[in-house]
Simulated scan of single mutants.
Amino acid sequence: MSFSILKRLPLFSPPFVNVMASSSFYCGVQSKRFLVLAQQLRHYKPPPCSWDDNEERIIEEAAGKFVSQVGFQESVTRVAQNPEKFRSKRAAVLICLFEGDAGDLRVILTKRSSRLSTHSGEVSLPGGKADEGDNDDGDTATREAKEEIGLDPSLVNIITVLEPFLSKHLLRVVPVIGVLNDRKAFKPTPNPAEVDAVFDAPLEMFIKDENRSAEEREWMGEKYLLHFFNYEIENKRYLIWGLTAGILIRAASVVYQRPPAFLEQSPKFKFPGLVDK
């Protein structure tokens, strides 16, 4: 029973590249379930949408770039823009997975502090903006997770990264998938300035049509769906939506290798030229 979920996780097929792999990495994965999962996910290759500044500038000048809005991956939406007007800041969030008591894959989530000026009280993944000292997106995600909820980076094995998402505030957010290699060693210590609560939810929930609702929204004449997931744990109710829901839908689709059981309806609108306004 403890390995039932792996039967629903088919191996990835080529072409994929080895994103992160080493013998020491696999030694750190204590559960056989996560060993198999790590071996699968390390071959995941996100759609090409990230370049260094020079390459990015050339591509943006030559043609519209694929980015997204309000919590959709960059590869979804074509953007026609002036590259001088749009230089988004980078951030990373940690999709930290562990094996639950029922043998399911679960992801660690937070409820943002009600005292924050933006997105107060909303559910989010641990993470934040990149610092100059960060070597990569994995460093950003784990550093922020430690600051927010006291998660020691040494307890997390980074497996892969997904394609970036773009928030409604024009922040490029890179989802980083990691495995919690010692669940008992993690004792959440929320930073009260940033986090009100730490909880976990089943990852598979985000590709099921249960406890989900959607609202049709319109922006610049184009319609898209905004997804909401209602979740209750330990007599507390949480609403997971927007950017966080979009990232988790994508993560669950990659992990379980099947599309969600509902229509996503991604936006197809073009980005305005003067995005600084």
Score class of each variant (00 low, 15 high):
D104K: 12
D104E: 14
D104Q: 06
D104S: 13
L105Q: 03
L105M: 15
L105I: 15
L105N: 10
L105T: 12
R106N: 08
R106T: 07
R106C: 10
R106H: 08
R106S: 06
V107A: 07
V107D: 04
V107N: 07
V107H: 12
V107T: 13
V107G: 04
V107I: 12
I108T: 13
I108F: 10
I108M: 05
I108G: 07
L109R: 02
L109I: 00
L109T: 07
L109C: 09
L109V: 01
L109G: 06
L109F: 02
L109H: 03
T110P: 05
T110Y: 00
K111I: 06
K111C: 11
K111D: 03
K111Y: 00
K111M: 10
K111V: 00
R112S: 05
R112A: 10
R112E: 10
R112Y: 04
S113F: 01
S113V: 11
S113Q: 11
S113Y: 02
S114M: 15
S114Q: 15
S114C: 15
S114E: 13
S114N: 14
R115H: 13
R115W: 08
R115N: 15
R115L: 12
R115S: 15
R115T: 12
L116N: 05
L116W: 02
L116K: 03
L116Q: 09
L116A: 01
S117Q: 12
S117Y: 05
S117M: 04
T118F: 09
T118R: 09
T118D: 02
T118A: 09
T118I: 09
H119N: 14
H119M: 10
H119Q: 11
H119Y: 12
S120A: 14
S120C: 14
S120P: 04
S120K: 10
S120V: 06
G121W: 03
G121I: 07
E122P: 00
E122T: 15
E122M: 14
V123F: 01
V123E: 04
V123T: 11
V123R: 02
V123P: 01
S124M: 07
S124F: 00
S124Y: 02
L125M: 06
L125R: 02
L125H: 03
L125D: 00
L125F: 02
P126H: 02
P126D: 00
P126E: 01
G127Y: 01
G127F: 00
G127H: 05
G128N: 03
G128Q: 03
K129A: 11
K129F: 10
K129C: 05
A130D: 10
A130V: 14
A130P: 02
A130E: 12
A130C: 11
D131G: 08
D131H: 05
D131N: 09
D131I: 07
D131W: 04
D131K: 09
E132M: 10
E132S: 10
E132P: 06
G133S: 11
G133Q: 11
G133R: 05
G133T: 13
G133L: 04
G133F: 07
